[in-house]
Each structure stands twice: as C-alpha cells, then as structure tokens.
Design a protein around this nucleic acid. Sequence first.
DNA 1: CGTCTATTGAACGCGTTGGTTCATTTTGAC
DNA 2: GTCAAAATGAACCAACGCGTTCAATAGACG
Lengths: 212, 212
Amino acid sequence: MSRGRIDKREAILAAAFTVFARQGYARAGVQEIADEAGVAKPTVYSHLHDKENLFRHAMAAAADEVAAENLAIVDRLRDPGDDLRAALEDVAFRMLRVCCDERSRALRRLTFGQVGQFPELLDTVQERTSCQIAEAVADRFARLSLAGRLRSCDPARAAEQFLALLTGPLDARSRLGTRKVAAAETRAIAAAGVDTFLRAYAAPGAAESPDT
Amino acid sequence: MSRGRIDKREAILAAAFTVFARQGYARAGVQEIADEAGVAKPTVYSHLHDKENLFRHAMAAAADEVAAENLAIVDRLRDPGDDLRAALEDVAFRMLRVCCDERSRALRRLTFGQVGQFPELLDTVQERTSCQIAEAVADRFARLSLAGRLRSCDPARAAEQFLALLTGPLDARSRLGTRKVAAAETRAIAAAGVDTFLRAYAAPGAAESPDT
DNA sequence: CGTCTATTGAACGCGTTGGTTCATTTTGAC
DNA sequence: GTCAAAATGAACCAACGCGTTCAATAGACG
C-alpha cells in the first residue's frame, strides 16, 4: 500500500512539532527534525518546501489535535445531569488537564513566541482553539440559561469569564506552564473557578447556588 | 560629566529591548541593536559581555518598569472611597491599559517565547510582575474583607481570580495582544470583570452588591 | 599639553544552518 | 521480474551573525 508515503509526511510533521517544541523555532535544525522523524533531510524538503512551511503545517496539525480534544470535553455539558456544579467542575478539571498538557503548552509558547515572524499563525491557531472553544462553551451556557439553570446573561461573556477563571489561575500557578502542577491542585483551581462562576451566574435560588 | 558612560549602558539596554521586541531574540542582530542605540558594536560587547547577557539585562530592566507602573495603580485601592465598584473599575481599567501597552505585550511575548532557551528568565520576569501584583492586590482585598467591604474569603484566591477576569477576556479580545482594542471596549471588559467579581465577592447586602 | 580611558569603524574568523545536488538504493505497483 | 517513483546519504554552497581584533579618534583630567 502507498500509505508509506503519507505516513512519512505525518511522521515529519509530528517530529517537527516535537523538535520545535523542544528547541524553539530558531534553534531547531532541519537535520534534527529529519533525524527525529527517522528520515533523510532531502525527504523533508521534498514533502514540505522549506522550514517556514514545515513550521506552519506542523503548528496547524498540532492545533487541530488540541482543539478536537477540548471540544470533546465541552460536549459533555450537553447533558449536565442533576448536579450542575459537579458537571462544570468535571469539565473544568478535564480542560485544565488538557491545558497543562505539554502539547498545549508548547503550542501556546511557539505561537506566542513566533507571532512576530509568522503573523498569520496566530489566526490559524487561535481560531482553531480558543475561539472555537469559547464559542462551544457559550452555546452550552445559552442552553443552560434558557433552561433556567443559569441566570439570564450574555453567554459569550459568561463563557469568556468562565475560561478566564480557569486558565488564569492555572497560568499563575504553573508559571505559564513551566512548572508541573499536581492533579489535586488542578482540581482545587477548577473547584474555585466554578465556585466563583456559580456565585456570579447561578440562577437565583437554584440548587447549585452556593448559599443553600 | 561621566554620565556619558552610564547613559550609554542604559541606552543600549533600552535599544536592545526595542529591537528584541520588534524582531524576536533570534532574529535580532547585535549590530542592529548597536545602531538603534547610536553606538558601535564593540561598545555593546564591552558593556554587556554577550548577546545572552544583553537579553537578560534588557528584559529585567523592562520588567522593572512594567512592575512599577502596575504597583502604582494597585496602590489606588488603598483608599477606595465610598463606591467600591467604581474604585475597582477604575483600577481594572488602568491595569488593562498597561497590559495593552506595547512594552507589556512584548515583555510577555519574549518571556514566553524564549523560556526554553532562558529558563531562569521566567522567574525573573514573573517574579517582578505577576507575583508582586497579585500579592499587592491580595493585600488590598484582605483589608477590604476585614473592613466588611468584601465577603470573607481567601484574599490570594480572590486576587488571582480578579486578575484572571481582567486579563483573560482582554487576551481573547486582543488576540494575545496583537490586535488593538479600543479604549471603550477595554472599559467594557473592566466593567464586566468587576461586575462578575463583585457578584461573587461582594459583602452580603452591601451597597456595591449588584442586586440592590 | 600629555595621558589615559572609552569609543569607534572596519574588517576578519568561524561556526552554524538553510537549502541543493547527485549518484545510489529502496520501495511499491503491475 | 521490471520499472518508475520515492528515499537516502553524503557532500557542498552561500549566507548570516556572533564575537574579536586593531589601529585610529575623541574627550576628560591633571
């Protein structure tokens, strides 16, 4: 089967992201990427024309993976069950775990760091991750609001703040993703974020309201 | 006067940060920095031994400036006046403006992007900015809580979440600081963040509670 | 005025790395 | 088994940029 050829391309992209994540764009050598992929240098250049192209494609592929992972998690809010707080905490915890993931962190690091040299990269990545996720969360919140589980509010703003309440403290605790943060602490951050969120957005008198 | 010598060093550091911010670490040439500072290349090497050292010192200096600016703003919470909501919104807005500032953004970009090559840089910068600021805010919140203006809470967590509610949405809106965001929108973000914060942290039955 | 120090400009060595060439070998299709 | 496309390895070129050297200059101080 001719899968061998396609596999090579995928292997190169995966290896490229690995090496870029480890070394940064400038310090990563094409030869090094070729080695990591178990492939010769000319093979790399035959699949991806030059280093810049290689970088763009590797980043896009990685962004797609991360986005898919996150969207799958948010989808769990489609049927939140009886205990909204528990459901939110569960989703929050899972999303934070993904954000802690080395792949996510490297993606953000590289995007942020190379945005000067690759201006359009920001749109590519941000579009596929943050925006889509915020949108998905907003969708869920809109339904929850309509169902009387959350107070009437702007779902986009609620989603924005919900995500901020999670990722902000995580970044602070993990030193922008360079320190490891224990699962227990991650769970505490999720619980704290959800608590504050519910204090601000729970439907008045609802069961998940913190003062009951 | 022998100020000329010290001035040169400062000029070099300032120019270095400017060029690093514009080009990124790898793409910035020492010659270019020397030109920007109006100085010869050997002069740069005589003051700062090599490029890495130059980078470290330039970043530290820039971090100090940003930190000082932010701390001055937080200090305004020392005497919040009658209207706590207004005071918080004012501080929030001013801090967001600083975060939008090109210097702050470049600082974060460079730190984040070069953290792989300069691991200790993260501590240097983060220590001087985020940590100090969160600490200062926590101090203010502790006093406010004791004075009955905020509900009883963990001030560190409250500060963490307060800052997250501001910077998170700002990052989302400004595409991590690459799009300009109008002053009106910044103010809206500040108001929204403070609103959510007060819903979660206002003292029960206080005047600044949103349901009065 | 003489001296010492900081600065300058220009050039250089040198290592690194992106990108290419080519002859050879492997691979997969038929 | 045959053939064409793809992969390999090794070498090569050229550009770039760090860091240095050095002779010449400017300026402060006594």
